[in-house]
Design a binder for these strands. Structure first.
Lengths: 117, 117
DNA sequence: ATTATATACCTCACCTGTCAAGGTATATAA
DNA sequence: TTATATACCTTGACAGGTGAGGTATATAAT
């Protein structure tokens, strides 16, 4: 884990919704996927993950159902709702906008040497 | 202000240090610069700004002195320290790394259609 | 004179998201 | 029987952001 939480913060919900855009999934699997996709550089803490599920379900972005596994630990699957898809797309746009602005702001000292001051 | 605080969070200190890399400055001016650079899409809340100054000064990244204005409101100027410059460069690297990872994570549904799951 | 606006600083209480630490349960490998 | 992997969940503490409030100087408008 080399990515600071404070830099990921605000993207947690988008990341989870993004995974559910692919297909229904459950907590443990989503977290493994995040770890894999990030090349092992990031993974959500379990408490953060389940807090996010609760938040997303309460806001109507996802819904859940128990899997019918006949063996192993039970799994709680999540589905993204239409509201969730809409929210995901909005958050993705927000990220792209913010990314550009943050880039400008943190690099102010390098581009053009100080416009704005 | 169209940028979500949670997306900026974690970059606040980097942004402030970035401004001080250009030249010594004071709170009010830094905030105006941020607003200008972001095209009016973002500005720090005053409470956030002054909390950040306190945090950065306590950690030795910046130091301060009172301006010698003979008119108008007094200004408290901040200088970036060698530790601050080092911290700034490290945080900039962290942002660049995180940015790529977050991009991968939030766009997982679009690139390659689901690798990692 | 008074009000409004701009500049310029600061603090406190509250909110939200993260997370360490703890817990429960099933299945398999050592 | 112990360890590891899978799989879920909660609680209390913590840190950063922020609304709301305060102080003070200077100028422009009423």
């Amino acid at each position: 884990m080399s990515v600071t939480s404070d830099l990921i913060r605000g993207n947690t919900d988008t990341i989870i919704l993004g995974q559910l855009m692919i297909r229904d999934s459950y907590g443990y699997e989503i977290n493994k996927s995040i770890s894999t996709i990030s090349g092992g550089l990031y993974e959500l803490k379990e408490a953060t993950l389940y807090t996010a599920f609760k938040r997303l379900e309460e806001s109507g972005c996802i819904s859940s159902y128990w899997g019918d596994e006949m063996t192993g630990a039970r799994r709680k699957y999540y589905t993204i709702t239409p509201l969730g898809k809409q929210t995901y797309r909005r958050m993705l746009e927000e990220w792209n906008t913010s990314k550009k602005i943050i880039d400008k702001l943190v690099n102010a000292a390098s581009d053009g040497k100080g416009e704005g001051l």
